[in-house]
Design a protein around this nucleic acid. Structure first.
Length: 139
DNA sequence: GCCAACGTTGGC
DNA sequence: GCCAACGTTGGC
């Protein structure tokens, strides 16, 4: 069971918009980066990911679940671009900010810190557990 | 709003 | 196949 992290600018697609979609979920479209796409192709039904607000907010606000594995991104005809569907599972009691993550030595290897431009990234089991604790949320 | 870092494109 | 030019992302 792998864990993931999805970034979005809340002005464009934020946690509230994700929650509003309910259990039907929504495709994580618009990714035009091979590494991010490859991460989505590796995702399995039922796996979980963090939902991170980039640009404004700069914090992890909740947990989403993969509710459809990789398929064509319907916002383009270009067959290179796939995406998964995700649905909101639960919010963090306390959002975990980028500042806190950077201040935590055990999270220094996170892609969020090391390759800040990658919009869909893997999260290790240990990182997952720790961040859930920091967010006072069940992992 | 700025700009550094990074990824992609395309001419050679 | 190199690399300069360009576009985009995202922290600050």
């Amino acid at each position: 069971m792998a864990y993931w992290l999805f970034k979005s600018e809340p002005d464009v697609w934020g946690w509230d918009a994700q929650v509003a979609k309910g259990d039907a979920g929504e495709q994580w479209d618009g990714v035009r980066n091979y590494q991010a796409r490859n991460n989505m192709r590796a995702m399995k039904l039922g796996e979980k990911g963090f939902f991170y607000h980039s640009r404004t907010g700069l914090e992890i606000v909740g947990i989403v679940e993969i509710c459809a594995e990789a398929h064509q991104d319907s916002t383009t005809d270009d067959p290179r671009w796939d995406c998964v569907d995700v649905k909101a599972m639960r919010p963090f009691k306390r959002p975990v900010t980028l500042v806190e993550i950077k201040a935590e030595p055990r999270l220094a290897e996170m892609a969020l810190v090391k390759s800040s431009r990658l919009s869909v990234q893997p999260v290790s089991d240990a990182e997952w557990e720790l961040i859930c604790e920091m967010g006072q949320t069940d992992s």
